[in-house]
Lab assay of single mutants.
Amino acid sequence: RYRTTFTSYQLEELERAFQKTHYPDVFTREELAMRLDLTEARVQVWFQNRRAKWRK
């Protein structure tokens, strides 16, 4: 599977959502995914990776 490349707008929005909550529920993820034209799975994985980065 190829690596997803996020646009700067998508990253800004994902980071903004991350500032609000590190653990968005499925509705929040679905809403973000639709708004950013991504799949909910991509959003979920982004948050997993972002939390890992945050913990370091």
Rank of each mutant, 00 (worst) to 15 (best):
R35V: 09
T7R: 04
R55I: 14
R50P: 02
Y9I: 09
L32A: 02
P24M: 04
T5I: 08
T21L: 07
T39E: 14
D25T: 07
R42D: 12
L32R: 00
R35N: 12
T5G: 10
T21E: 13
Y2D: 15
Y9R: 09
R1E: 12
T7M: 03
E30I: 07
L11E: 14
L11F: 05
E12G: 12
D37Q: 14
L38V: 08
F27Q: 13
R3I: 15
Q10S: 03
T7K: 03
R29D: 00
R3A: 02
Y2E: 15
Q19A: 15
Q19F: 07
L11M: 12
K20Q: 14
V43M: 02
V43L: 10
T39A: 10
E31T: 14
L36C: 09
Y9A: 12
T21Q: 12
W54V: 03
T4E: 14
M34P: 03
D37G: 12
K20M: 12
A52Y: 09
E30T: 12
H22M: 12
E40F: 09
E15H: 02
E40D: 07
V45K: 05
M34C: 09
L14P: 00
Q48A: 10
F6G: 04
F6P: 09
D37A: 11
Y2T: 13
T21W: 04
E15Q: 04
L14W: 01
Y23T: 15
L38N: 00
R50F: 02
H22D: 10
K53T: 11
Q19I: 12
D25E: 05
E15A: 02
W54L: 10
V26S: 11
E40S: 12
T4W: 07
V45S: 15
Q48V: 14
R16D: 03
T5E: 13
R3H: 15
Q48I: 03
R29L: 12
E15Y: 01
L14D: 00
V26T: 10
L14V: 01
T4P: 09
Q10G: 01
K53A: 14
L38D: 03
F18H: 01
R55W: 05
V45W: 05
P24W: 02
P24I: 05
L36D: 00
E40W: 05
F6M: 13
K20C: 13
K56W: 01
Q44K: 13
Y23A: 12
F47Y: 05
